[in-house]
């Protein structure tokens, strides 16, 4: 006899169950958690080094790459706590990968957890990891059309960091166009303009994370 079972579940349902488990773990600790997503080379790790120099061990970074421990080493050298996930081929981090490293973690002294996703403007945006917010990073060297060309991330990102602004005199980046397109995708996105080379905008980012923390309680 054939039985029809109505599921009406997202293809990502099993991931989402684990994401909620992660969310419960994070809520118990009271830390703020953000999922940082961008293409490779936008400056995510450099931004995190700049945050690390200010926040020290109050910042924990879980960083995902296909392979190597390089990002973890950079973040620890800059003064923050780092955990590396090597995905060995997966183009995005999943809730299960995060769960495996945070289950049983003490989070001692941590106020902010940044999950630095695999460099990829498409796939990571579909996966809930249990974060409070997705943060998109876009460097001015990548072009002002990036948001409108890669909307699946920018419709979901509560904040967008436009990075490497020290390069603006040397690249063809229309800031007004980029910001306008970002707002067409998510009308209330917070937009930050930063440079790791000069330090511009980094303090604004720190303040944003502090407020996110306050609002999340």
């Amino acid at each position: 006899m054939i039985e029809k079972l109505r599921l009406a579940k997202s293809a990502h349902a099993l991931n989402d169950v684990v994401a909620e488990q992660n969310r419960r773990i994070f809520k118990e600790t009271g830390i703020t958690v953000v999922n940082m997503i961008s293409s490779p080379g936008s400056g995510k790790t450099s931004l995190l080094e700049a945050l690390a120099r200010r926040m020290r061990r109050a910042l924990l970074v879980i960083t995902g790459d296909i392979q190597t421990q390089l990002d973890k080493e950079r973040i620890e050298k800059a003064g923050a706590q780092g955990i590396q996930i090597e995905t060995r081929g997966s183009c995005h981090l999943s809730a299960a990968m995060i769960n495996a490293v945070v289950k049983g973690l003490s989070f001692s002294g941590v106020k902010l957890l940044v999950i630095e996703n695999v460099g990829n403007l498409v796939c990571p945006s579909s996966y809930d990891l249990g974060e409070h917010e997705k943060i998109a990073v876009l460097s001015v060297a990548e072009g002002d059309e990036k948001p409108i060309k890669y909307p699946t991330l920018f419709i979901r990102a509560g904040a967008v960091v436009i990075n490497k602004i020290d390069l603006l005199p040397y690249v063809n980046f229309d800031m007004d166009r980029a910001m306008s397109d970002i707002r067409k995708l998510k009308h209330d996105a917070e937009i930050f303009k930063t440079s790791c080379a000069t330090g511009d905008g980094i303090q604004d980012l720190v303040a944003y994370f502090d407020n996110l923390k306050a609002n999340s309680r």
Binding site: I2, L5, A8, K9, A11, H12, L185, H187
Partner: peptide, 22 residues
């Protein structure tokens, strides 16, 4: 003419139902 809108359907891939042999 605004952009303060949310996608309410069509953003996901869903498993609607399955049939199993009892």
């Amino acid at each position: 003419g605004g952009y303060n809108r949310a996608l309410t359907a069509g953003s996901d891939c869903t498993v609607e139902s399955i049939e199993v042999e009892d």
